[in-house]
């Protein structure tokens, strides 16, 4: 049990690390949101599962935390992305280096 819990904790930490690397490497804000949202959501869920295996008595509160993360994380990301689009931030695209505005509406 201890081993499985540790495995979940390591996987969760790894996904969170990938998310952080994504934040640095991605070319524009929309891609950064993508990397951040997905990696951190699954990363924190894995961490929660790991903790639940280590401390089974906490399962109910960990479940509530997990569900709230699942609902609010994508919602927050979408809202940030929407605000950026309304503020006129153009998405980066490979084509836009030579011909801007091809991909957006």
């Amino acid at each position: 049990m201890r081993l499985i819990a540790d495995l979940f904790l390591v996987v969760g930490a790894a996904f969170t690390l990938f998310g952080a690397i994504g934040l640095i490497r991605m070319p524009d804000v929309y891609n950064r949101i993508q990397a951040g949202t997905k990696a951190v959501t699954l990363g924190s869920l894995c961490l929660l599962i790991g903790i639940a295996l280590l401390y089974p008595a906490w399962w109910s509160k960990l479940l509530v935390i997990g569900v709230l993360i699942l609902i609010t994380n994508p919602l927050g990301s979408s809202t940030i992305a929407r605000a950026l689009l309304k503020a006129g931030v153009k998405p980066w695209s490979k084509a836009s280096v030579s011909q801007p505005g091809e991909a957006d509406r």
Partner: peptide, 26 residues
Amino acid sequence: ALVQANLDMARRVLSPSLPLQPAVVE
């Protein structure tokens, strides 16, 4: 889909060429 998304994102982030072809679609 959530697990796939993470593996996919990890692959993109870690590959040296950063394979991206982003666009806003409807």
